[in-house]
Design a protein around this nucleic acid. Structure first.
Lengths: 253, 253
DNA sequence: CGTCGGATTGAAGATACTCAACATGAGTGG
DNA sequence: CCACTCATGTTGAGTATCTTCAATCCGACG
């Protein structure tokens, strides 16, 4: 299956075999399995290593009073949980495993080395961080300026593209093993309302969601409803030419 | 008045005189004045330098269809607009001047050098970037899990702390030269509703907003309404001891 | 003195919420 | 194999928050 992080970074930069090897070695080290709903990193603790999601699905979230909880980002294979970990004093939010999730524990020293070299890899990791921020900004737009329907469509479409980037999704279908309640926590709505919107999308023939897998039935219309403009994912590679990577996700933007 | 960026970074790390000098030199180079409402950086263009806000107030925003616009972050003196600038291909949002704003144009090469050294400064800049992300996440929580009143209070309180960090605010008052319409764009509400909430806060004796200056009249209650927990701003310094900096913003957390 | 951007107020309406009931389906134990 | 439970999904009815549209007010500034 290859290293998802490598695959992701190669959407942006061209990596040499040496660099690829180095990433693989980094990711292959100590891995740990987390059960569904387990807390991977807890708020207010100091993370002692940087975590890389290898498989499964995790989420950045904050537990609020009255049992509410806000999911701020979903983390899929190839995502680094926590570059913050080695630079900040404490986590300001939790990271939880949505499904069973495998994470690689990268030693702080290794990451630090990666981040301070003037290499392609450094640049790639910076790209990754900046893109994560851009995704956060898009979530703000979701909440501030899009209604429930647009918001849900936008999140789903974004996940499609992100899964595409790491080679998991085809052009209109991807695994998304979350409950409607989690989707509600992520979109800032109630589960009831999420349910109604999904129901609408289904009866309109736009979406199928079965066996933990989302299938977008009418991709162009879906994209339009979502007002999706993939610019913010920064998948246009500029450094070291392009080509060679057969399947890129650019066509979904 | 000193360099706001230096001041900000020193909330987190202790800088040597040499390092301070280096920052000052960086910031003092080419400066440009932007008039109110002028676009500082435009979406889809490649930024050719990194911008540092020297004075004034700017905002990251995205123009949406139907004249709507979403403000994702306010930028105050000492904030770097755009570390993205040198790593990504294109801006995925606009940066606009809210009031007359002075920005320093930092050469890409200079910043790159700063970011790839294994120095305290590098670490400090990483901290700055990570904290910016944390602020974005907090905005997501605002929109997803707080009602209008909490949302407005939270944003205002956060601005108080941030202005405090750069030495502009006292313990309960700071300059905030924005219209209610802008606040609406930032909180994802209508100007009308913003107006009503502010009006409530005023009649309850919690807030004064006059001459472009916000004064929080009952700080503890205001903080409580905002459900403010400053953990996410990561103002607890750990590296190279503490002390010496007379006025820190920790007491507001 | 008139104009213009911004603030304020009112009334009607929509989107999304709350509460609550009920359905479904997987898993468990008798 | 059925009864039971538990988590999740579905549906209905009433309600609240926030929006929309519109009118009016206010102060700065030509």
């Amino acid at each position: 299956m290859g290293n998802r992080l490598t695959r992701k970074l190669e959407q942006f930069v061209r990596l040499s075999p040496t660099e690829r090897l180095r990433l693989d070695k980094l990711a292959g080290k100590r891995q740990k399995v987390y059960r569904a709903n387990e807390i991977i990193l807890e708020e207010r603790t100091k993370a002692e290593f940087v975590l890389l999601v290898v498989s499964g699905l995790a989420a950045r979230c904050k537990i609020l009073s009255e049992g509410r909880r806000q999911i701020m980002a979903f983390l899929i294979p190839g995502d680094l949980c926590d570059i913050e970990g080695f630079v900040l004093n404490a986590m300001d939010h939790d990271i939880i495993a949505v499904t069973e999730t495998v994470c690689a524990h990268l030693a702080v020293a290794d990451v630090e080395e990666l981040l301070t070299e003037t290499s392609t890899l450094t640049r790639a990791l910076w790209w990754s961080t900046m893109t994560d921020s851009a995704i956060l900004r898009e979530r703000i737009i979701d909440h501030g300026s899009r209604d429930a329907r647009e918001r849900i469509c936008h999140l789903i479409y974004e996940m499609l593209v992100r899964y595409r980037v790491i080679g998991v999704a085809n052009s209109h279908s991807f695994p998304f093993p979350i409950t409607q309640e989690l989707l509600a926590d992520a979109t800032g709505m109630t589960p009831v309302h999420v349910n109604r919107i999904l129901s609408d999308l289904r009866t309109e023939g736009l979406l199928r969601w079965k066996d933990k897998t989302v299938t977008i039935l009418d991709v162009p219309r879906f994209k339009e409803i979502a007002q999706f403009d993939g610019c913010y994912l920064h998948l246009e590679r500029t450094f070291q030419g392009d080509a060679e990577v057969s399947e890129r996700a650019g066509d979904l933007l």
